[in-house]
Computed example of a mutant assay.
Amino acid sequence: MQTENRLFDDLAKILNGAAGTIAGMGREAESAARERAREWIGGLDFVSRDEFEAVKAMAAAARDENDALKARVDALEAKLAGGTAPAA
């Protein structure tokens, strides 16, 4: 009876060791895949969020300036044409 228990104990140790090894391999594979993805994405021409927000703000400012200049041009054209300037 003692030998059967020892056999089961040894078998349990082997299975626990194998499970630990498999889990470690899984973690290592996941880490390697993440690193490869970072390398691949890093090689592409993505912009950071800060750069995107800065360009977006500059575009909004340029759009506002363009609208103001268009209103001035329209007023000047109206003045040259002899009409009255539109209310801005």
Rank of each mutant, 00 (worst) to 15 (best):
A85W: 02
A33G: 13
A75P: 02
A59I: 09
N16E: 12
A60S: 13
A29M: 08
A88R: 04
I14E: 10
D45S: 08
I41D: 09
I22D: 14
A60R: 07
L15K: 09
A23H: 07
L44F: 06
M1P: 06
R49I: 11
R72K: 15
L76I: 12
K70H: 05
D10P: 00
T21F: 03
A23Q: 12
A54G: 14
G43H: 01
G83L: 02
L69W: 00
M1L: 07
A85V: 11
R6F: 00
A59F: 02
T3K: 01
K79C: 12
S31R: 06
D67P: 03
A68V: 10
R6P: 06
K13Q: 15
A18K: 04
G17V: 05
G42E: 08
T21A: 06
A23N: 12
A68Y: 00
D45H: 02
G17R: 00
A33K: 08
E30N: 10
K79L: 10
D74E: 08
L15E: 14
E77D: 15
E28P: 03
Q2C: 06
A81I: 06
G82I: 04
F52N: 11
M1E: 14
G43S: 06
M1V: 14
S31K: 09
D50A: 07
D10K: 03
R38W: 08
A18P: 04
A19C: 12
M1A: 15
L11Q: 13
G17M: 03
G20V: 04
W40A: 11
E4L: 02
D9Y: 01
R34F: 05
L80D: 14
A68E: 05
R6N: 09
G24N: 09
I41V: 15
A19L: 11
E30T: 14
G82R: 05
T84H: 07
A60K: 11
D9P: 01
A68C: 12
A75N: 03
N16R: 10
V47I: 12
W40S: 14
F52A: 09
S48D: 13
D50G: 08
A88T: 11
E4F: 01
G42K: 01
L80Q: 15
R72D: 12
E51C: 08
E65S: 09
S31I: 13
A37E: 12
E65D: 15
D45F: 02
E35G: 05
L44K: 11
T21E: 07
E51K: 03
R34S: 15
A33Y: 02
D50K: 00
F8V: 13
G24H: 03
G83R: 03
L69Y: 07
E30F: 03
